[in-house]
C-alpha cells in the first residue's frame, strides 16, 4: 500500500481488475485523473451504468483490494458506511493504486441485451389505487429487446422531453407486453400525462433495459423488501422464481406503503403467496387507520425480525426510495446478512 499522504492523487496510470459475478475477470488501465467507468468504456468493456454523475448508484462496485477513492470534488449518493465497506460508484471513482473490484452481475449481462431505443404503444393505464397507476405498454414486433426480471427502462413522457425510469413488473416471457407501476405525484410530468392525457394507442419512447438489479440463483432464504411502487421489480422476480426450475427457496416479502388507504396490489402479492407455499408476506403501512386492514403498523424495514435473517446465507433484494434502501441495508447488516448478498435498486419519485 502506498503512503497516500505523500503521493499526489492519481499521478499515474493503474491497472484495475474487474471481477464479474460469473467468475470472468477483465483488466483495464485507468489513466491519471480518469474515472474507472470512463476507462472501461474507453477500452470497450461494457459496465452497467446510467447517470455517469454519481447519483443513480447503478454503477456501484465492491472494492476488493488496492486503493480506489470517490472523487472528492463530486457529490455522490453513497452513504459513509458504504464507503467504509468498500462500495464505490465507478463513474466517479479515481484509482490511487492497482486495485480490484467485484461487480455483482455476470460479464455477459450487457452483451446479451444492450439497451435499445424503441417506440412502444400504450395498451392500458389503470388506477390500482388512488395514487398508483398500472401502465401496460406493448413493444413493437421484431425488435431485439430482452431483459432480466428486476431491470428497468427509461420512458419519455409523451408531449414532453422528460424521461422517467420504471422497473418492469411483468416477466420477460410476457413480451411484447411491458407492465409498470407508477406512483402519481402532484404536478409530476408523467402523472399529469397518465391522469389527464393518456389513451390506449399512444406512442411512448422507451430505452432499455437498464440496471443490474437482477435475480441471482441461490437456494438460501430470500428476503425482499419493497416500498411503494418498488414492489414492481420484486413481483417480476417472484414470478421468475415461480417459473424457474429447481427447488424454490424460502422467501419473505416485506412490502409497505404510506398508509392502509394507499396500500395497493395486495391481491397481487397475496396471489403469489397462494401459488408458492414457500413465500411469506409481511404487509405494512406507516399509518394504519383501519385496524381491520390486517396491515402491520410500520415500514417494511422496521417490521423485519432477527428470525427473518437467521440463515447466514440469506440474500436480500431491496427496492424503494433511497432512505428505505439505506435503512434496509443497515438493518440487514445488523441482522447478520452479508452486505455482498444485498442487492438494491433505489428510485426517486418524480
Amino acid at each position: 500500500m502506498t503512503d497516500l499522504r505523500s503521493e499526489p492523487a492519481s499521478a499515474q496510470a493503474h491497472e484495475i481488475i474487474l471481477r464479474f459475478e460469473d467468475g470472468v475477470e477483465k483488466r483495464i488501465t485507468v489513466a491519471a485523473g480518469e474515472y474507472v467507468l470512463d476507462a472501461a468504456l474507453r477500452q470497450e468493456i461494457a459496465l452497467v451504468h446510467q447517470c455517469r454523475s454519481g447519483s443513480c448508484s447503478t454503477c456501484v462496485a465492491q472494492m476488493m483490494d488496492g486503493d480506489l477513492r470517490m472523487d472528492p470534488s463530486r457529490a455522490h449518493s453513497l452513504i459513509p458506511a458504504e464507503i467504509v465497506q468498500g462500495r464505490r460508484l465507478l463513474c466517479s471513482t479515481l484509482a490511487h493504486a492497482d486495485s480490484s473490484v467485484r461487480l455483482d452481475y455476470p460479464s455477459d449481462l450487457l452483451e446479451e441485451a444492450g439497451p435499445k431505443l424503441f417506440s412502444a404503444t400504450v395498451e392500458d393505464a389503470a388506477m390500482v389505487s388512488d395514487t398508483v397507476v398500472r401502465l401496460v405498454l406493448k413493444a413493437p414486433r421484431g425488435i431485439d429487446f430482452a431483459y432480466h426480471s428486476g431491470q428497468y427502462v427509461r420512458v419519455k413522457v409523451p408531449g414532453t422531453d422528460q424521461w422517467r425510469s420504471y422497473s418492469m413488473a411483468s416477466l420477460p416471457r410476457d413480451l411484447p407486453k411491458l407492465e409498470f407501476l407508477i406512483r402519481l405525484i402532484l404536478g409530476g410530468a408523467m402523472s399529469e400525462y397518465l391522469t389527464a392525457r393518456c389513451e390506449p394507442g399512444d406512442e411512448i419512447e422507451v430505452e432499455g433495459p437498464l440496471g443490474a438489479f437482477i435475480l441471482r440463483e441461490s437456494p438460501a432464504p430470500h428476503v425482499f423488501v419493497a416500498g411503494g411502487t418498488g414492489v414492481a421489480p420484486i413481483i417480476s422476480m417472484l414470478d421468475s422464481i415461480r417459473r424457474r426450475s429447481g427447488v424454490k427457496p424460502p422467501m419473505l416479502l416485506s412490502f409497505g406503503c404510506a398508509s392502509d388507504s394507499q396500500f395497493f396490489y395486495r391481491d397481487e402479492v397475496e396471489l403469489r403467496a397462494a401459488w408458492m407455499p414457500q413465500l411469506r408476506l409481511r404487509l405494512s403501512a406507516d399509518r394504519v387507520e383501519d385496524p381491520a386492514s390486517g396491515l402491520v403498523q410500520g415500514n417494511p424495514v422496521q417490521v423485519l425480525t432477527p428470525e427473518d435473517a437467521a440463515d447466514p446465507d440469506t440474500v436480500a433484494y431491496l427496492c424503494g426510495p433511497p432512505p428505505m434502501i439505506e435503512a434496509a441495508r443497515r438493518r440487514l447488516n445488523e441482522l447478520g446478512v452479508d452486505p455482498e448478498h444485498i442487492y438494491a435498486e433505489q428510485f426517486v419519485a418524480s
Binding site: 392500458d124 393505464a125 388506477m127 390500482v128 401502465l135 391522469t195 392525457r197 393518456c198 389513451e199 390506449p200
Partner: peptide
C-alpha cells in the same frame, strides 16, 4: 376507457 388512466 376515456382519456387518462381508468379506474379499476
Amino acid at each position: 376507457m376515456g382519456v387518462g388512466a381508468r379506474k379499476v
